[in-house]
Amino acid sequence: MPIFPLKLTPPIATNSLKAAARFKTRLSETAVIRFLQTCAWISILTTIAIVVILGFESLVFFKGVPLLDFLTGRDWSPLIEPRSFGVLPLIAGTLVVSLGACAIAVPLGLASAIYLAEYASPKTRSLIKPTIELLAGIPSVVFGYFAITTVTPVLQFIFPTTEIFNAASASIVLGFMVLPMITSLCDDAIRATPRSLREGGFALAATKAEVSLDILLPASMSAIMASVILGFSRAIGETMAVALAAGSTPNLSLNPLTSMQTMTGYIVQVAMGDVPHGTIEYQSIFAVAGTLFVMTLSLNLLSQVVVRRFARQWE
């Protein structure tokens, strides 16, 4: 939209009432625009504050615990003596839970996106799409309740060695939390491909499945990749469901049937315990949150790069 000049010109030297009124309007105009500008600055200040606070508290933490020990240590026991601050078990827990979630959300989300975009009739689509999006509106803590009361008993029935708190149940519910996002992003991407691609495929005697899988999927690959990265980043940052279902035992293992603590789970555990400000436990949650922030931010930036670099322009 046109950019209006933001200049405050004083009234011409007349005593005319009109000019005075105009000056008044311009004055209030400037005030309003200054206010809007201030509001816009708040969101920039938020970013700066996040970086500064996480960075500052982490720096204090790294004075007590060397950065190398933090990043490569294989033992995380911050609350019990002897203390040890090796973040690898928390990262392992986070990755096991998030990768498990993606293993569920990506195939299911992609398949339902293809179904909604290519196969479903407009009527079915208008019914199913909002229903799947309902899943996205359900609070995280509700999924945590579901994992504990429903998914874990089923898992224990199938694998009797499953612990009460386990990474697998968290992965499963997290998968269904991430699914709507992947479905709707992929659905948009597939629907945005031009009709001529489909017609070309059918003219070469391809079946509908071949058109979907061999033509439309590669054509919308950039958006699909981006949605998968975003979903993964979302799963890493998810808190309440994981804190409820995955348990609070830092555990450097790959067995999803055991209790594992994620980075977010640790932060919640410490925050619930009302740790006084200034202690090393208090600083440790900032260090863990900083690690989390760096991970999600780089994944989000990566997804933006993927979209920009590999996106195809359909004429």
Binding site: S43, L54, T239, F293, T296, L301
Partner: peptide, 27 residues
């Protein structure tokens, strides 16, 4: 710049906002 900043803010995990609130508003 603001636009880029907002796009990135929307991807920040809710928990990190909690840390921000704890440090800025509470303390």
């Amino acid at each position: 710049f603001l636009e880029l900043n907002i796009a990135n803010l929307s991807g920040v995990p809710s928990l990190v906002y909690g840390m921000l609130g704890l440090a800025v508003f509470v303390r």
